[in-house]
Amino acid sequence: MAEFSGQGGLSRALNAAWVRPFLFLIFIVIVWDLTIRLFKIPPYQIPAPADVVAVLWHDWPELLRQTWPTTYATICGFLLSAVFGIVVAMLIAGSKTVESYIYPLLVFSQSVPKVAIAPLFVVWFGFGIIPKVIAAFLLGFFPVVVSAVQGFKSVDPDMVDLARAMQGSRFHVFRAVNLPHAMPAIFSGLKVSVTLAVVGAVVGEFVGSNSGIGYVLQRSIGTFDLPTMFAALVILALLGVVLFWIVDRIERLVIPWHVSQREELLFAA
């Protein structure tokens, strides 16, 4: 009996959602290694996977130390973009006047490359954490606004009328109808935003910082230390995945009723 369930557990583990991308990742690493061996690519162009793993293994205390400032800046920038993004979206969706003034400018501001203006923040705020947070915020802000505006606007006007007809105040109607309705759209914006916030933080570290994974990247390129650079890239990718996963978990807690979560609910029932 125990053997039976153990076997079921093994096959379930092999078919679990996270195993498949992991297997694919191993496949990519093997192809990477074989390509280097077959075509004799010199290590100053592409490092071998084993060298990258070796750097990760030996330098992990240093790499971990550099990960914290990046993570911190990413999370701060992301939270700022979430708060400001939702508030601005509320104003845009709530008032035609605000929309006509702000929305075109917002789209216009998105066409300005953040990398180009990032040095400006260093001039204004020095080499501390603030330029990184601002860069992360600027990259993460726009997707939240666009999705949240779409979420707030897609509410059925009849539904709002219905709540208003029960003498619901504007605030009560908003809290009971508009806000929950916009939640799925807001979360899809937040998920895009959190991965972009990582990019923003690294951009901030590129232009002016003496700590963080972006700084490690910059320095290792300067010394042609490609294994360290690839190790930094791996850490950045992991950071993005972990933050995305956290937002995804929060989404499941906040909107368990939504279509995208229904399958689990059926299993639970």
């Binding site: 219905l162 709540a163 007809a165 029960m166 003498q167 619901g168 009560h172 109607v173 009971a176 009723w257």
Partner: peptide, 29 residues
């Protein structure tokens, strides 16, 4: 608030269960 309205679509809030949907006017008032 002295009227009850029924539209063509049931317009139930998908995040509220049936009982809480029925109680929506009570919350609003």
């Amino acid at each position: 608030g002295n009227v009850g309205i029924v539209f063509q679509n049931s317009l139930l809030l998908p995040w509220r269960n049936i009982l809480n949907n029925v109680l929506l006017p009570i919350d609003m008032k």
